[in-house]
Each structure stands twice: as structure tokens, then as C-alpha cells.
């Protein structure tokens, strides 16, 4: 598998680490416990389109959002989570 890193270009799998589902969002402070349990533990685990977090650990270090199909491994979109252009 090769992930087209927006900063470094297409690079091989071994340069990246995987974190998991990127669609879960951290609840607001004070949100009920169920929301936190759901955020940390529960996953849709889809067979097909999956939006996920990867980090280009052996490259630029960016956390990436990768749209990848879990049945074919086809990657359709990759973006920095925090566009580096925004950094001051």
C-alpha cells in the first residue's frame, strides 16, 4: 500500500502508523459519560469506505485523514488534518 502524503508524495506503507476511525470526535468538556465511551471505544468498522487517521511518522510527521476502502485498500483522498499552511 502506498499513501499519497500531501507533503511528501506517495510513500510506502511502512513509513506510516495507523490510528483508526477519523469520524469519531472528542466530546465537549462535561459531555455525558456515554458520549465519551462511544468516542473512545465504539466504531462503525465499515466494510468499504472508511475515513481514518494515519501519521506519516517516517516522513513529515503530519497526521493525515485518509479515505480508504477496507475491501480493496483503494485510497481516494488524503489530506492533512491540520493544513500546514495554517501554521504560523
Amino acid at each position: 500500500m502506498r499513501i499519497p502524503c500531501p507533503l511528501c508524495g506517495a510513500r510506502p506503507l511502512e513509513e506510516f502508523v495507523y490510528r483508526g476511525d477519523a469520524t469519531v470526535t472528542r466530546p465537549e468538556e462535561g459531555a455525558p459519560m456515554e458520549e465519551w465511551v462511544s468516542y473512545v471505544y465504539l466504531r462503525n468498522n465499515p466494510k468499504g469506505a472508511h475515513r481514518e487517521h494515519w501519521r506519516h511518522v517516517a516522513g513529515c510527521g503530519s497526521w493525515l485523514i485518509v479515505d480508504r476502502n477496507t475491501l480493496t485498500h483503494e485510497i481516494t483522498r488524503v489530506a492533512e488534518v491540520r493544513p500546514s499552511g495554517d501554521a504560523r
Partner: peptide, 15 residues
């Protein structure tokens, strides 16, 4: 990796 995640993903607005 974890604190980069915290910065880039959880609190990207933090300067």
C-alpha cells in the same frame, strides 16, 4: 505521536 495527535487533530486551533 500522541501529543502531535492532540495538537494536529484535537486542538488544531492552538498556536
Amino acid at each position: 505521536s500522541h501529543i502531535e495527535f492532540c495538537h494536529q487533530v484535537l486542538w488544531p486551533q492552538m498556536d
